[in-house]
């Protein structure tokens, strides 16, 4: 009987294990292997060399580009967190009726009905030199000359990131906020806590797991992105994703793999650090 139970357990775990093995572990192992291979102009050949990593770590471009990637990730994180937290707070604590709550939550998801590339590109004519933003500001008399930095700059890259990824912050935070026992808030008030004190000492600690999940989403999405940076900076800025995509375009798979491995390790380390702060599993 016990043996059957064991067998059943293994069988139940098998489909997921097979999927993870085939679609997650195997490709990563492959990438790690290829990162030690050599490449010529048009082909790659099996080898075991550290040249790809040596070049990567010796090139100042690598550090600059990783720096830019961290910068994008951090700024985007700060904005998506503050916007996401505010929106979630409003939805969870200010809207009393559950119907309205659900309706407003669905409203938040409307932008996701179109592809994120389209949402991103639609910023370009808006922010351009002769775009709606500049024309409006000029007609209001706020500025005399079109603002050049609106488009093809760090500003436009981060704007697009924030626009694209804020919902990934809203959803998990909203979810944890909804599970906060309302009597805790009453207790805080009964004990004389101000609104701000309740927010800082009751709501914030209790929503940490949601914030953490949102943070993981946003950070990994931004760090792995290449297309947003390419389009919104007019190809003038680079992040790690673009480095990889350039290498792939030029058939330098081993060097692309090496960069990918370093990026993967960096992101894993960051997530490991984040998880030290909050036990997500407790809350799921």
């Amino acid at each position: 009987m016990t043996r059957n139970r064991h067998l059943l357990g293994w069988l139940e775990a098998a489909p997921l294990a097979v999927i993870l093995l085939g679609f997650l572990i195997a490709p990563i192992v492959m990438i790690v292997i290829v990162s030690f291979w050599g490449a010529t102009e048009f082909s790659i050949y099996p080898d075991f060399q550290f040249e790809n990593y040596a070049f990567l770590f010796s090139s100042p471009v690598t550090y600059k580009v990783f720096g830019a990637t961290f910068k994008y990730a951090f700024i985007t994180w700060a904005f998506t967190l503050s916007i996401g937290f505010t929106v979630a707070y409003f939805l969870a604590f200010h809207i009393r009726s559950q119907t309205v709550q659900i309706a407003l939550f669905l409203v938040c998801t409307i932008p996701f009905w179109t592809s994120n590339i389209i949402r991103m590109i639609s910023w370009i004519p808006f922010l351009g030199r002769n775009g709606i933003a500049n024309q409006t500001l000029i007609s209001w008399g706020v500025i005399d000359e079109p603002l050049e930095w609106l488009l093809y700059s760090d500003f436009s890259v981060i704007l697009a990131f924030v626009h694209l990824y804020t919902l990934f912050m809203v959803v998990p935070i909203f979810n944890t906020m909804m599970r906060i026992d309302k009597s805790l808030l009453e207790a805080a008030r009964d004990n004389g806590a101000s609104g701000l004190q309740t927010l800082l000492h009751v709501i914030l600690p209790l929503t940490k797991p949601g914030i953490m999940i949102g943070t993981i989403f946003v950070v990994t999405l931004v760090m792995g992105d290449f297309i947003t940076v390419r389009f919104m900076s007019g190809s003038q800025r680079a992040n790690v994703g673009r480095l990889i995509s350039n290498d792939i375009g030029l058939l330098q798979y081993p060097s692309a793999s090496a960069t990918a491995v370093v990026l993967l390790c960096t992101v894993l380390i960051m997530i490991a650090i984040l998880l030290r702060f909050v036990n997500i599993r407790k809350e799921l």
Partner: peptide, 25 residues
Amino acid sequence: AKKAGQFRAFWKTFDESVNLMASGE
């Protein structure tokens, strides 16, 4: 020249070059 801000953008596809020119960027 790039650091001095000479370039508005770089383009990779045909359409991008058309849009950059047509929009006056």
